[in-house]
Write a protein that binds this DNA or RNA. Structure first.
Ligand SMILES: [Zn+2]
Ligand SMILES: [Zn+2]
Length: 592
DNA sequence: CTCTGCGGGCGTA
DNA sequence: TACGCCCGCAGAG
């Protein structure tokens, strides 16, 4: 292998040599070698069934979020995650309580409250999206993807209303979410020891609904002000911990210590898992603590539920440290990799525009990222397709067999293929990995002209370039106008003249049985919704509505290997794609 | 009127 | 027992 031909970003790893890999045992695990053409670099990769590591890449990712939302004790995190408005995969995040969107349990997806009989864990399930029964296309090429009202009564009013496209005589149909083993994707929020733990289960199998108007208005006002605080705090911790590396260690707070007597999600005390003690917390002046709240309260703003900004800053400084560059990759992951719908502008484009070199890497490598066409899949080596990886928050407690070894999932059904490929996350993991590399050598692609444009770049002279890069991501997100183009951002709830009568109560989704084939649960053998699970779009842009309803459900899985409902099905079945099972293929570099 | 969260209750596996 | 989901209620905006 010609190291010299590798991009600069890979040089630190390629020239490092296999002998210097942190995990020597991986070097002996040669089962299958696959050549992957990445730019002009051929990287020998080894696929194994055993846990392996990418040097300094995967290990860092795996250190994040091994918890489950139901765990009795949730670990303290070193750094908070940037708020993710569109959590698309099974994922876990830990947000700062001062991130308003996190406090409000905001999601781009239309999530409604669901009673899980656990007052300490807020559970929400996805309502799907309203689409046109005629699958019409607006003049601008966009599809109808209206946001379901959260209120049941309001949502009922939406059903059957005429398509908002004046040229269409279709009606609105609720495309229900079945991305979690046939059930709606669920989000869990838990406020524990001064942080907000978020976990998503399932993968949405429908287009993104249009964003709430309130979100739009707030977004431009806020410009991720609060996330900047998280970032800055992390940067400060990074700076501090270069001087005090010995202070860092992870803590675990027992669940019993995390629960206060305050109402769930309305905590007004400061004793939730962490009590600010000025005697033990070295406080330093923090000139960069930004103003958290807007001068003019927006209708969405509520009083801060946990502590003051001051105590939070102290909490950060004491408990969190060491900027995790993976946060950067996470953002890339969230911004530009997940298939988008609705002809939405790819946030990735913004990132690419700002970082052309990164764009090249993302779009020209053959790792399958940003899957675009069926041909991409068909023409790729089968081995390439084996790169099934875990979701963005790997659960190490699960077993991940080789899903794509199943002959039944080959090309006969293009939509299945799409789903497989999309689910395979080949691109995501690989891109994450490369993102990590990128974030470690941002100077290779982040030119001075960009950095100089940052108004605070001069204020953080000792901040690493990756940090600066990370700081750009929220801007990309904010500037990229990810809103759907199909409807006006000023209105979200469609206004219609006539209402459809409220249907009688139905089991398992009152509004989801429109012309959909029914399957007995026993046919599938897994505890899943007896409706047609919809596959994912591959290119993530224009997926006709009918596609979401045309695929037979998997019938190989008995679901017996799923620990929890729809969580991880470890058998070798087609149900994985609906359970979003974690299929881990270990990838190690081979040096020749 | 809608959003949001809470919680009782029921059915299913 | 866990889960999904319906429903009504209440507070807030
Ligand atoms: Zn229409
Ligand atoms: Zn969904």
């Amino acid at each position: 292998m010609n190291y010299c031909s590798a991009p600069a970003i890979l040089q630190p790893y390629l020239t490092k040599g296999a002998q210097n890999l942190p995990h020597n045992r991986d070097k002996n695990l040669y089962q299958k070698s696959v050549k992957i053409q990445c730019l002009h670099v051929q990287v020998e990769m080894t696929l194994t069934e055993e846990p392996t590591f990418l040097p300094s890449i995967k290990s860092r990712e795996e250190q994040k979020h091994k918890w489950d939302i139901n765990d009795n004790a949730l670990p303290l995190v070193e750094t908070f995650d940037m708020f993710t408005e569109w959590p698309a995969e099974n994922c876990r995040y830990v947000y700062n309580v001062e991130v308003e969107d996190a406090r409000r349990h905001v999601s781009g997806w239309a999530m409604r409250n669901t009673n899980n009989h656990n007052a300490h864990i807020l559970k929400k399930s996805c309502l799907g999206v309203y689409v046109c029964s005629h699958d019409c296309t607006l003049e601008n090429g966009a599809k109808i993807n209206l946001r379901p009202a959260i209120c049941d009564k309001a949502r009922r009013k939406q059903i059957g209303k005429p398509c908002p496209n004046v040229n269409c005589k279709g009606r609105l149909e609720l495309l229900s979410c079945k991305g979690h083993c046939g059930y709606p994707v669920t989000h869990f929020w838990r406020h524990v020891h001064g942080a907000i733990y978020f976990q998503a289960k399932g993968v949405h199998d429908h287009p993104q609904p249009e964003v709430k108007a309130s979100s739009l208005s707030r977004r431009h006002q806020k410009m991720t002000r609060q996330q900047h605080k998280v970032m800055i705090t992390n940067l400060l911790n990074e700076r501090r911990n270069r001087k005090l590396p010995s202070e860092r260690h992870k803590k675990t707070v027992p669940y019993s210590e995390c629960v206060c007597s305050c109402p769930p999600f309305e905590c007004t005390c400061k004793s939730v898992g962490y009590t600010y003690n000025p005697a033990t917390v070295p406080r330093r002046p923090n000139p960069w603590t930004p103003q958290i709240y807007e001068a003019t309260p927006s209708p969405w703003q509520r009083s801060s539920s946990v502590g003051s900004a001051e105590s939070q800053a102290a909490f950060f400084n004491d408990s969190f440290s060491n900027v995790d560059h993976l946060t950067c990759s996470d953002q890339i992951h969230n911004v530009g990799i997940h298939p988008q719908f609705n002809n939405q502008k790819y946030p990735c484009d913004s990132v690419s525009n700002m970082f052309p070199k990164m764009n090249i890497i993302f779009q020209q490598n053959n790792f399958g990222n940003t899957p675009s066409t069926d041909d991409t899949y068909r023409n790729s080596s089968p081995n390439l397709r084996v790169y099934k990886v875990h979701d963005c928050a790997p659960d190490e407690r699960s077993v991940y067999p080789n899903y794509f070894g199943d002959e039944q999932h080959k090309i006969e059904n293009s939509m299945k293929i799409k789903s497989e490929l999309r689910d395979s996350c080949v691109d995501m993991d690989t891109k994450d990995n490369f993102s990590s590399i990128l974030s470690s050598s941002t100077d290779d692609f982040c030119g001075d002209d960009i950095l100089n444009g940052l108004d605070y770049s001069g204020s953080y002279g000792d901040i690493l370039d990756p940090d600066l890069f990370q700081s750009l991501i929220p801007r990309c997100m904010s500037d990229s106008a990810t809103y759907p183009m199909n409807t006006s951002p000023q209105t979200t709830t469609p206004q219609y003249a006539e209402l459809k009568p409220i249907r009688s109560r139905q089991r398992q989704g009152s509004f989801t049985n429109i012309n959909q084939p029914q399957f007995k649960s026993s046919d599938i053998g897994c505890k899943r919704r007896n409706e047609d699970p919809s596959p994912f779009t591959l290119d993530g842009i224009q997926m006709p509505t009918s596609f979401y309803r045309s695929i037979d459900p998997p019938k190989q899985c008995d679901g017996s290997q799923m620990r929890h409902h729809g969580e991880v099905c470890s058998c070798n079945c087609a149900l994985k794609q609906y359970c979003n099972c974690n299929h881990s293929i270990n990838i190690t570099f081979t040096y020749k």
